[in-house]
Amino acid sequence: MNRTLSVKHLLGIKDLTKEDIELIFSQADEFKEVLNRPIKKVPSLRDVTIANLFFENSTRTRLSFELAEKRLSADIVNFSASTSSVKKGETLVDTVNNILAMKVDMVVMRHSAPGSCLFLSKHIDAAIVNAGDGTHEHPTQALLDAYSIREKLGSLKGKKVAIIGDITHSRVALSNIYCLKKLGAEVMVCGPSTMIPKHIQSLGVKVEHSLRNALEWCDVANMLRIQLERQEVSVPYFPSLREYSMQYGLTKEILEGLSKKVVVMHPGPINRGVEITSEVADHTQSIILEQVENGVAIRMAVIYLLAQTRRTEKEVV
């Protein structure tokens, strides 16, 4: 097994190798054990300072990153755009450079602009972890999704995963496709044709427009949220939420009427009654809360591995 990551930053799953993903998973296994100890904290990152820059709203990702950092004993500084100088017209590089001048080793960033993390990695000297850049990638979510499937089904190889919902606006979908394909799973995307990007087949995924067909095909159904905030009001993607939910909402009746037991996932936040009903969200086949638990272990593994790589690189130079 590889002993180091092949990358200095986690900008997207696209840049990772299969070995990188497996290394992250093997370390996440150990961190998961740490999270179940009486004392859930290790001192590894005592001298590492991490800045969490959230230019876009987030609850669970931000909490999950913060918790992961605290469990590793890192020092953290938090930043959210709504309370900062960004409102006064400061540029991204200036904002970040100001934070780095305070000797920060790592930056976890969420931003509404796709590619903002790549841009930042070229301009500043710190390890960058992408916590979601616009509609581009959300790598830690894809890692924790794949990790949760591996935990539930043993392995990803040959498993069939359907990603259902708003594929066009979803960074989770893109990162998941890259991650699942690298680990040898088969992927299908399913949703109204207005919400499936053209040429998505070039990523090696199947496209399906019927929810029932997708569910009959898959072992795992990853239900995505309808991202109303990313849809321009002038361009309707579907007639109404009610109609979307009639056609693409997963109900208990549909789930239990299938010929096999399909694992249900959701990256959150859930719109109960839109993409899945409450009964499905709390169903025994749903692993939504396991995903949240695994999120902390995966983020600990990513931060731990990046913090080490960084130092090694510096010493070579």
Partner: peptide, 21 residues
């Protein structure tokens, strides 16, 4: 497994990988 408690994190050339506890 002593990995997470070692005092040479970021100080040695070797990557410290954890084993099961």
């Amino acid at each position: 497994d002593p990995t997470f408690y070692r005092d040479d994190f970021r100080r040695s050339d070797k990557t410290l990988l954890a084993q099961p506890t």
